[in-house]
Design a binder for these strands. Structure first.
Lengths: 277, 277
DNA sequence: AAAAAAATTTCCGTTTATCGGAAAACAAAG
DNA sequence: CTTTGTTTTCCGATAAACGGAAATTTTTTT
């Protein structure tokens, strides 16, 4: 990622956003006390004056903050309010918290909420249970290819068929990194659709299992997923049945609460014209 | 140092970031199911083709997502990971959660964590106690001028003197919106510095009070603040003394835990040169 | 404390990505 | 099927970004 001057990949279009995003990524990938301009210059391969001008612009608009004491650059707190907006997507936000809380309390394990974003599943919330062996696989904002991980698999399994096919074909190489070949994944998808929830037993990280349930629109498309992660011995037999049941119910409840916003048809018909400021 | 940066509006510099930020703001300000391109065009006042190109770029880099079903534009989930980076600022993140949790459990009221960002205090986390009368004044990402609100006031009070003076002068008009004149604020600042915590008794929202304590660097500058909000009757007399004590202690603990990162001097001297890729 | 080295900020001629109007392609409504 | 509205592509003109280098400031070394 911080390659020297590979930036010129395709100069065709949208260069402005590309550069800005690159700079923010660089700063975000650095530690808790930020970077100096030189560090950004070095890692981005951009010219000094370009980086300077870019940072000035980013600061002016709150995307980047500069520590007044050290002059170092940090990711701006405007991201927080934008994230709040991003998470209100599909209207799940007001209810998701309570769902996670309930699941977490009932299972004592770690529970996650993920959204689909492009070809990825992104972890947007997490609640840590008090079972002593912690399984923190996903941090906030982490993303994985659709199909990799319990929540991610349940998202993939409930995409429209053409979309699913496209994703299976497109992302083969990325998935290979995780040791998932396409044939195996297809089998898991069928299994998941069949049962209505996904089970990931130690394939991704040995000794750890995951359970995922999709949050569905009325047309059957998944937009999000709830999942539980635990050491494998805690997701077997009786308990597995129990938890998968609970998880599915919770996912359905959640989908139901937000269904007015979730439903794509409704949204499409809803008119937004002539909104004045 | 001459002119050329003030309220000239647009047209000056860095127009690229300005436009991108504007578009994201517009989408963020819309409801949970996003906007169509036309809506963005209308609200931004930009040309159709410009918006189109801009959105394409923003999507390519994950700043904006497009719902595959409805084709509407939503704030991208990349913001989530950027926000995670933004909140790791000063190294407080790993400890802040526990602090909020403890305060919330002990008081049953609503507790907040805020950071300073430019001339504002921004709410970055919140925990809601179970006292039946809720006082949810700040949402995640909300920002207010420094000095307005308990946490914000404690942040302002513990800025270096020259900075404080500059802020008092610069932001007078913005603060006026909240009914805070400069003289009154100066008095409150003195009081806050004196006691080591801020008390906001119903001036901002009548019937509601707040209590704030700064999280200080070793040089005495505040970078963040913990605060408690409750109906005024719950922040008086005996209980006020108790809670302010607890709040200050928690703020100090938090600062202590993160002190290695917090301390500006240390950061400045720490060499980052030649970071290899 | 002065000198040296590094880093930041400003300047300015050149280049090129952006702009925006208009029309083509597409989708929805009547 | 027609009409209306929305998204996408095209293209020449121009304003905005680029980047080398100099001026300034900050940091490190002596």
């Amino acid at each position: 990622m911080p390659d020297s001057k590979e930036t010129t990949g395709r100069k065709g279009d949208h260069q402005n956003v590309a550069r800005a995003a690159q700079v923010i990524d660089i700063i975000a990938a650095s530690g808790p006390n930020g970077l100096r301009m030189t560090d950004v210059t070095e890692r981005s391969g951009l010219g000094g004056s370009t980086v300077h001008r870019l940072l000035a612009g980013l600061i002016e608009h709150g995307l980047i903050d500069q520590d007044p004491e050290t002059n170092r650059y940090l990711v701006g707190l405007k991201m927080v309010s934008w994230t709040a907006a991003a998470l209100s997507r599909y209207g799940l936000a007001p209810y998701a918290d309570a769902s996670l809380e309930r699941l977490c309390a009932a299972t004592s394990d770690t529970v996650y909420l993920s959204y689909r974003s492009g070809n990825d599943a992104v972890c947007v919330d997490r609640r840590e249970g008090n079972f002593p062996i912690k399984t923190l696989t996903l941090a906030l904002g982490d993303h994985r290819p659709l199909g990799i991980g319990a929540g991610s698999l349940s998202l993939l399994a409930f995409q429209p068929e053409d979309d699913r096919r496209r994703l299976l074909a497109e992302d083969a190489v990325r998935r290979a990194t995780y040791g998932f070949d396409t044939a195996y994944l297809e089998e898991k998808i069928a299994e998941t659709r069949d049962r209505g929830f996904s089970l990931n037993d130690g394939k991704l990280i040995s000794g750890m299992s995951g359970l995922g349930a999709p949050i569905l629109r009325r047309d059957g498309t998944a937009v999000a997923a709830l999942s539980i992660a635990a050491i494998s011995s805690r997701l077997e037999g009786e308990r597995l049945t129990e938890l998968s049941q609970m998880l599915r119910e919770e996912a359905q409840t959640l989908a139901g609460r937000a269904s007015d916003v979730l439903d794509a048809e409704l949204v499409k018909r809803h008119s937004f014209r002539k909104v004045q400021t």
